[in-house]
């Protein structure tokens, strides 16, 4: 998925998780410091993305997951599921 499209998807899902408006979630926003998310909230967002896009995000090698852009990068780098 292109990075821009992934970023929009992440912003939308984050806004739902945080009960905030999409305009409050910027690409450079820090998940923890600015958006107040803990690791449980991040895990929930990742799974919400997986359900919506029917994929398994590649997380094992991800060291940095600090900003909205980092999350979008994970989604963008995950191959689309093979449809049968």
């Amino acid at each position: 998925m292109p990075q821009l499209e992934a970023r929009d998807a992440v912003v939308r899902v984050l806004a739902i998780e945080l009960k905030a408006s999409e305009s409050e979630v910027r690409a450079a926003s820090s998940l923890r410091k600015e958006l107040g998310m803990d690791s449980i909230a991040v895990a929930n967002v990742l799974y919400a993305l997986e359900e919506e896009y029917d994929c398994e995000l590649e997380l094992d090698g991800v060291v940095r997951l600090d900003t909205v852009e980092d999350l979008a990068g994970v989604l963008s780098n995950t191959p689309a599921p093979v449809s049968h």
């Binding site: 690791s39 449980i40 991040v42 895990a43 929930n44 990742l46 799974y47 995000l57 997380l59 094992d60 090698g61 991800v62 060291v63 940095r64 997951l65 600090d66 994970v74």
Partner: peptide, 12 residues
């Protein structure tokens, strides 16, 4: 962060 999010998601 990535593996932790994966593990927590599975645990939940």
């Amino acid at each position: 962060a990535g593996p932790l999010a994966r593990d927590l998601g599975r645990l939940i």
